[in-house]
Simulated scan of single mutants.
Amino acid sequence: MNKLLTGIAAIAAGAAFAAGSAYAEPTYRFGGGPSGGAWHPATSAGTQLLNQELKGKYNFIYSPSGGSVANVRSVGLGNYATAWGHIGQIYQSWNGTGTFEKDGANKNFRVVARVRAQSQIFAVLADNPIQSFSDMKGKVVNLLSRGSGSNVNCVNVMKALGMMDNIEARYLGFAASARALGDRQIDVFCSAGVPFLIPALTQLSVSKPVRYISLTEEEQKKVTSAYRFYSPITIPVQKDIKGMDKAARSIAYDVWWIAHKQMSDEAVYDMLKVVAAPQNLERLTKAAAYWKDLGGDFNALEEHKILVHPSAARYWKERGVKVPMSIVKGY
């Protein structure tokens, strides 16, 4: 009797294992962004689309994050399978410099797509006497929450201009910093622009007009010389920002989509094939405009020698994109 029961138990266990193997799909975490920023709704919508289109083959789990620094670090460590990151953090992680110096160089990920370009915004209430960066000395400047790429970019600008020791720095998130600006608890709001706007600031300007502060040409050169992954840009007047009446010099940088080596070649290809399909990209863009410029232009990565995933190169080449093969390499 005992032998019979043992045999039945063994058969049952084997059947359960086989069933589990048949229905267990690879699970991949997709890193998102902080509340009040543009990445949170965009990557959340992307994750939902992937699960709808690839149900039964893969399971994607959306994971809110602190932003670019957290995303790039988490992908490098394999805690996230995929995420977006600013070129600054990707470059520093790849080379083990700057914010990632203590982490060491990490090449456990590859780039799969260019998401879009961003700019950096420095804004004040329209009636604030601050007119320039030099006027910010002794003022309360919010540099966004630590761990976000926007925070790193805010700090980089201030460091390049020798201003970090001359301001009262605060580290509030997107939504909290917009409220603080409106309540005059801070003097200057710093944030990424998508490409020239951020929702929390746009909403604030409806009731309390704001202005963007412009770098001088000399200040702009200081920043782009100190950090080679930035390029100069002039933000045109934004009609959605009530109170903005002048263009503002700033910096621009790319946002890239990266994937950890835990993702199979097929998974990377399938992920792109779903998200970047024109009809799906149109759907995503309606839900979150941040997806609008997703593409396979990897030329900017040649200078930095950051590698592109072979499956991504395959997909974008099939779409007619000319991919520089000198930076396409697996693990």
Results as ranks from 00 to 15, higher is better:
Gly56Glu: 09
Glu101Arg: 07
Ala247Gln: 07
Ile8Cys: 12
Arg249Asn: 11
Arg114Cys: 10
Val268Lys: 03
Arg114Phe: 07
Ala22Ile: 12
Arg249Lys: 07
Asn51Tyr: 04
Ala83Glu: 09
Ile235Lys: 00
Gly31Pro: 10
Ser207Leu: 14
Ala313Trp: 01
Ile121Gly: 04
Thr47Asn: 07
His260Ser: 09
Phe17Lys: 12
Gly20Arg: 08
Ala267Pro: 03
Asn2Val: 15
Val188Ala: 05
Asn153Gly: 09
Ala200Met: 04
Trp94Tyr: 06
Val321Asp: 00
Lys246Phe: 11
Cys190Phe: 08
Trp256Asp: 12
Phe30Gln: 03
Lys261Gln: 12
Ser191Val: 10
Leu172Trp: 13
Val223Gly: 04
Gly7Val: 07
Val255Asp: 08
Thr224Ala: 05
His260Asn: 08
Ile251Pro: 10
Phe189Ser: 03
Asn71Pro: 12
Leu4Trp: 15
Tyr58Asn: 01
Val157Lys: 00
Phe196Ala: 08
Asp187Arg: 02
Gly31Ile: 08
Val237Asp: 00
Phe196Lys: 04
Arg110Tyr: 13
Gly96Asp: 10
Thr224Tyr: 07
Ala276Trp: 05
Ile213Asn: 02
Ile327Phe: 07
Ser21Tyr: 05
Asn142Val: 14
Val255Lys: 00
Ala169Ile: 08
Phe133Lys: 08
Asn51Pro: 11
Ala70Arg: 01
Lys208Asp: 15
Ala117Trp: 06
Ile186Gly: 09
Tyr269Thr: 09
Ser134His: 13
Leu77Tyr: 14
